[in-house]
Design a protein around this nucleic acid. Structure first.
Length: 523
DNA sequence: ATAGGGTTAG
């Protein structure tokens, strides 16, 4: 993936072709580009590719003690993104490259930034080897970065992610230069409100980030009264302070309080919401069902220019209109967005909006428009389409056409949710034989789940013959699931075949299976 | 360039 030969980096075939030219940009411009697109893995990847081919990856300022100008920002992007492993590999390759080059015996040109981002890599929940963080901790000690407050703050966070709380305390305890903000944050994450509050209270000076850290921590712990108490005491409230509480209330399903916070922010502090505030308030707006407020948020968002900038705001608004019951506004807004700005989520949102309104045909048309533009649906898109078909009164042939297309054309392996849609559709149609035929063709690892769904469908339609066949199939696959026996015997009871029912109950006792407390597989 | 809030289904 990251190939280097004879000390010189070379490009690798797996990199995507550059769609735009980065060749004339200065180092500062490239840095800014990385910072702006930190959440866009494609651009990160393209820039990485460019750095390698143009020999910029190891570019460093000679007069400034050899700091890496583009390597660290690149590391940061990968560490925060979807593939933190790339960050680790990037670091590892450079380290080995340095090790094998014989002209220098000194340590690699890594600085505190490198290790800070490396620690963040290991605390990223997507990173599969969090224990590597402990080794990196050792490195920072060896290299003398233990006096860097940022590095240590990241270390504390890392240990909390790894679950090693004792070490988190220990690292903090040995910090020579304590950042009170970090201490407050750490206590909050650990759940130690009293100590966090005490430290916070004794701080000689607090930055706005300090305030926001404690407000966020209290909100996440559900301590809304204390969070608001601090919010009111805070000297210079920022958008973040308010947004934290708005989001917190929306998440615990208290839309009224969230909306109240929103108005207080605007009225008391004359602070304008930003994109993230909008994303936080919209779920509150639709769960409160306030269509008129949906419209005023829309107006505000258009006026401030968030709409042409942030596609997520657009998507969230389309969704909010649909969930407030106004599919017309949803569609109108969707149509106003130029196709070049729409991303996969935009299309998926519109399809699921039609699905929740039972408008199957319209959903399918949107899906076909999307296909015509050459976009490839993902798992979520397909769930929405399939849902739209079964809820929107479409023929089962059409449903099955989409299902097959998903597998053959788009190479998406159906999971439990897709099969859930399938069984749901067939149940609505009462076509259980069809379902049985399909179930026979399903790949092995998912089989049991699907057969079990079918068994559930049989019990609704009182089809004991088929239920028996399905149960037999289930017995072949796995013998130990007690719920199947119970369901089967219930079906026989329901149709008056009590001896058959008893037969299954007995079989259950003989095989020594117990019925576990029930939980639904279909959600 | 470094700590704080983040779109779609179920």
């Amino acid at each position: 993936m990251f190939l280097f030969a004879s000390g010189r980096p070379i490009a690798c075939r797996s990199y995507p072709l550059l769609k735009r030219s980065y060749t004339n940009l200065s180092v500062q411009q490239l840095q800014a580009l990385l910072g702006k697109n930190e959440s866009n893995p494609r651009i990160t990847h393209q820039l990485h590719s460019h750095f390698i081919t143009a020999g910029l990856l190891l570019l460093h300022q000679k007069q400034n003690s050899g700091k890496l100008l583009l390597f660290n920002p690149l590391l940061r992007c990968y560490s925060l993104g979807e593939t933190p492993l790339r960050a680790y590999l990037l670091y590892d390759q450079l380290q080995q490259l340095h090790f094998f080059s014989d002209h220098e015996k000194r340590l690699p040109p890594f600085d505190s930034f490198t290790y800070l981002f490396l620690i963040k890599t290991t605390s990223n929940p997507r990173f599969l080897y969090p224990m590597l963080g402990i080794g990196i901790h050792g490195l920072t000690l060896k290299l003398g970065f233990e006096f860097n407050v940022y590095v240590q703050t990241a270390l504390v966070g890392m240990y909390l992610v790894v679950g090693n709380r004792v070490d988190a305390y220990k690292v903090f305890d040995e910090m020579p230069e304590r950042s009170s903000t970090a201490l407050v944050g750490m206590y909050l994450v650990v759940g130690n409100r009293v100590d966090a509050y005490k430290v916070f209270d004794e701080m000689p000076e607090r930055s706005s980030v300090t305030w926001n850290v404690i407000i966020t921590g209290l909100t996440n712990l559900g301590e809304f009264e204390k969070a608001i108490f601090l919010l009111e005491k805070m000297p210079n409230r920022t958008v973040v302070s308010w947004t934290t509480l708005i989001d917190g209330y929306a998440r615990v399903n208290k839309p009224k309080e969230a909306i109240l916070m929103f108005w207080r922010m605007v009225a008391c502090d004359a602070i304008n919401p930003n994109e993230i505030t909008i994303l936080a308030i919209l779920p509150a707006v639709w769960s409160f069902g306030d269509l008129s407020m949906c419209g005023s948020v829309h107006g505000y968002v258009v006026k401030t220019g968030f709409v042409p900038c942030d596609i997520r705001v657009t998507n969230s608004l389309i969704d909010a209109y649909a969930k407030c019951g106004c599919i017309q506004s949803s569609l109108k807004f969707f149509m106003e967005v130029p196709n070049v700005r729409k991303n996969l989520v935009t299309w998926t949102t519109m399809i699921s909006s039609f699905a929740m309104h039972g408008m199957g045909k319209e959903a399918v048309n949107i899906f076909k428009d999307m296909e015509r533009l050459g976009l490839k649906p993902n798992r979520v898109t397909m769930i929405s389409v399939l849902n739209a078909c079964s809820h929107g009164g479409l023929a089962e042939e059409e449903f099955l056409e989409f299902f097959n297309k998903m597998v053959s054309k788009y190479k998406i392996t159906p999971d439990v949710k897709h099969y859930g849609c399938l069984v749901d559709m067939l149940r609505r149609k009462g076509r259980l034989e069809e379902a049985e035929k399909i179930a026979l063709e399903i790949p092995s690892d998912q089989k049991a789940v699907v057969w079990r769904m079918l068994l559930g469908a049989c019990s609704v339609y009182d089809d004991p013959e088929m239920a028996e066949r399905v149960t037999k199939k289930l017995m072949e696959l796995e013998r130990g699931h007690g719920g199947d026996y119970v369901l089967m015997s219930n079906i026989f009871c329901g149709t008056g075949r009590f001896t058959d029912a008893q037969r299954f109950r007995k079989l259950m006792d003989v095989r020594g299976v117990a019925k576990l407390p029930g939980h639904s597989q279909v959600t």
